[in-house]
């Protein structure tokens, strides 16, 4: 990572998640949390101490956990089902499909420490397929907030939304990108930075890296728009079509395999909806199980340091007509 921010300004978005959940829980007794022996890693100790009855820890049993969430929703509760993202999505995918998506239950699936957050623990613990898996299902919006402010806004939105959703959170520190009063709108991308030569589309921990890359590009006279695309499904078609028409080139950045994630979703729109296709580059994990290393190390390795992103833009612009 070639643009460090003071550690004090880097936030673990789980803190914003639980602070918001505890506030919402105080106002609404129907809000419950379900977890899999993950009180610590989901930071639910505060929620448990405030509302002991409303934390259901089923133990190490993710399929059961999602089913229990669906049953709680059936009984009028608003369950936030929290687990490490790889086990929530990978282990319980059929429960998510049948009990949440197909049954249209009001289950908030909260994937904690998603992407490469578990770095050195290895590929079993990386959740870099979850956009692809969950976005293939009807009825379950897929959302990856970029900082603590957007995380809080997404949690608040989710509690009020009638239906299931998948909220993909990280534990890797990121600085603030949004203003404190930001409100989340489903399926609406946000322009984090205006630009006219190329558009960088990112979400989650990559939005900050994309912003830093835009600074590097600016210094070289390249004007990069940065679109924060927290909602992967339903995707903001209009923002993508405008980006293609107005900047003529798109680079996507995600903490996910390049197969089926944000980049793929954006490419689908470019192919289906843009009158004139534009050159595109999809940055992400290039379809391999990652080697040993921390999340930030691996993102750099996979060409997503700010400099790496900037270099991909420079390359792409050679293809621009």
């Amino acid at each position: 990572m070639n643009a460090p921010v003071e550690p004090a300004k880097m936030h673990d978005c789980r803190d914003a998640f639980v602070a918001t959940l505890e506030q919402l829980g105080a106002a609404n007794a129907d809000i419950v949390a379900v977890c899999n022996d993950s009180v610590g890693s989901s930071k639910l100790a505060g929620f448990r101490d405030k509302f002991p009855e409303r934390l259901i820890n089923v133990g190490i049993a993710e399929q059961n956990m999602v089913g229990v969430g669906a049953g709680l929703a059936n009984g009028g509760k608003i369950p936030f089902v929290c687990a490490a993202a790889p086990f929530l999505t990978g282990r319980a995918l059929e429960q998510i499909k049948a009990d949440v998506a197909y049954s249209e239950t009001n289950v908030k699936l909260v994937g904690i420490s998603s992407g490469l957050a578990y770095g050195e623990l290895g590929a079993t613990h990386h959740s870099i397929e979850d956009f692809a898996w969950i976005r293939a299902l009807p009825n379950v919006p897929v959302i990856a907030p970029a900082d603590r402010i957007e995380t809080a806004a997404v949690i608040e939105w989710a509690a009020g939304f009638e239906g299931g959703c998948f909220l993909r959170l990280s534990r890797v520190g990121v600085p603030d990108l949004f203003a404190e009063n930001h409100r989340f709108e489903l399926g609406r991308a946000n322009v984090l930075r205006k630009g006219s030569d190329v558009t960088l589309i990112a979400n989650g921990t990559l939005s900050y890296r994309a912003m830093t890359a835009a600074d590097l590009l600016d210094a070289k006279g390249i004007s990069a728009r940065v679109l924060n695309m927290a909602t992967v499904r339903p995707i903001d078609t209009e923002a993508i079509v405008s980006a293609a028409a107005e900047t003529g080139a798109i680079v996507t950045c995600e903490e996910h395999t390049v197969f089926g994630g944000l980049g793929s979703a954006v490419a689908e729109v470019v192919v289906d909806e843009c009158p004139v296709p534009v050159p595109m580059k999809r940055l992400g994990v290039p379809g391999v199980f990652a080697p040993t290393g921390s999340a930030n190390f691996l993102l750099d390795e996979f060409g997503m340091s700010p400099q790496g992103i900037a270099d991909s833009v420079t390359d792409l612009l050679k293809r621009k007509r």
């Binding site: 578990y118 050195e120 623990l121 290895g122 079993t124 613990h125 080697p291 040993t292 290393g293 190390f297």
Partner: peptide, 8 residues
């Protein structure tokens, strides 16, 4: 980094 010996 790149060790064969990751956490699992």
């Amino acid at each position: 980094p790149h060790s064969r010996l990751n956490g699992h």
